[in-house]
Design a protein around this nucleic acid. Structure first.
Lengths: 255, 255
DNA sequence: CGTAGGATTGACCCGACTCAAGTTAAGTGG
DNA sequence: CCACTTAACTTGAGTCGGGTCAATCCTACG
């Protein structure tokens, strides 16, 4: 539940970030593209999209002509069953690609909604094949991103299928925290702008049981719930509960 | 790299299937590659691998120098928790790519095991980038395959997270049946070479409960369990129970 | 003919679900 | 600045789907 028809408060603005000054490049998480690649990307980029929290960026079943990359903000990807049951399949943070499926297959098989105000780079899906021709290395990077998404989904599936409620929650929070930290989404406190309904729909649990599980972790002082967000207090302990296996982090590409 | 030109399409290697005679090409499911692409693929292919049921093709944590494509047979991808709990994340049939993650990231994050005797094409992971340079269209196809896998994972996640046991089972069986049919894995009866333990580990259920759920569908004559396999009797009814939403099927690429 | 992997079943239990009723906090209009 | 509204968080009570334990039964195969 919780998926209502959202009035999109979409604003198209003049471009704030030419690719050469892309704020993401400053982060060490990202591989720095070559100049020629940057020039190409800059022409590949068609504009910027700014949306508010709650806006639908991509709708299941739609055939959007666009492809996006997140510059700022948080989002989540989800699917719905005909009767309204919702499953969040993953979250998205700056540097992530959105809408690749739409570019390759016929129509989108999932929706994407903003968790916070966001800024996205807009590309033309029909031009994607040109990118593969002009810069094979960038094409390779797109594949890399798709493969990484697959990897995250495998892990989420493992969680939902085989971990207990508390393990799932600990894993999810640790997972999101790691990703967010890597792309500089936190300033000061590590607070994830999410509701317990989102958590429930991600973990495959009911809202009530999710709340009780959150309380358990909160009582142990591993996290704290504050106005519409989850503040992480003890990442290491969360990882321990989740049975986190140290993961390597390499410089990643981005569009 | 890959400099060996293929002027004559006659084969003298032990190889049973030169790409030009790839049996998969005959299926209408697959897009027919151009001659130049076929020539390239044939040089990209380094050999064939034949394994028995139960063989491990890829091991979690390993750094295999190979990349595979399935020519014949069934397999499944899975992950393990430290204490042994297993989650099967997806199945693989002819035409599917295995080990892409290993080619792009450091090491494999999941294992792959054969469900039946199999034949696979073997490629060199280090040469993958060359393929992107030589034939951008093929690189695009690799991305397409990765994106399709992502799509299937989303759907599996929806199943495990939000569907009831019987819906999950009906969905899974219908899903595998559709895929297998499309690549000609059935001859005569539609029988999936799988044990109930595999089903349980895919759906996130216990073996006992899986068995009881299987019995329910069997009593309704929608499927039948016979020596180590699941025979599908009424695909349409299974889809109805699963709340299957008609999916479009387009000609797909393959390596 | 014995063994082992896989399928079944019954008995009993618990984690997670639903229903129902608050409580808080953040807006919003007057 | 205060009443009203609404989204989101809490909590208790009772129920149930699915889990665990423990036999038992097949049946292919050495």
């Amino acid at each position: 539940m919780g998926a209502e028809s959202v009035k999109d408060k979409v604003v198209r603005s003049a471009r704030k970030y030419p690719c050469h000054q892309c704020p993401l490049m400053r982060l060490e998480t990202f591989r720095r593209p070559k100049d020629a690649e940057l020039d190409y990307l800059n022409s590949f980029k068609k504009g910027e999209l700014t949306v508010d929290r709650g806006a639908t960026i991509i709708a299941e079943g739609a055939r959007s002509p666009h492809l996006y990359t997140i510059l700022e903000g948080w989002a989540f990807r989800f699917k719905l069953l005909p009767d309204g049951r919702r499953q969040i399949v993953n979250f998205a943070v700056p540097g992530d690609l959105l809408g690749l499926q739409g570019a390759l297959m016929e129509e989108m098989q999932h929706s994407v909604e903003a968790l916070s105000p966001m800024t996205l780079c807009v590309f033309e899906r029909s031009e994607l094949i040109n990118l593969f021709h002009a810069f094979p290395e960038l094409g390779y990077d797109v594949t890399w991103l798709a493969s990484r998404e697959e990897c995250m989904l495998d892990e989420n599936l493992l969680s939902v299928g085989r971990r207990s409620a508390i393990e799932r929650l600990a894993y999810l929070v640790a997972f999101i925290t790691e990703r967010a930290e890597r792309v500089g989404l936190f300033n000061g406190t590590k607070t994830i702008p999410i509701t317990q309904q989102h958590i429930a729909d991600t973990l495959g649990l009911s809202l009530v049981h999710t709340n009780k599980t959150v309380r358990r972790l909160a009582n142990q002082k591993l996290l704290r719930w504050r106005d519409r967000g989850c503040e992480v207090l003890d990442l290491e302990s969360l990882k321990a509960i989740a049975g986190w296996e140290g993961e390597d982090v390499k410089a990643r590409p981005y569009l």
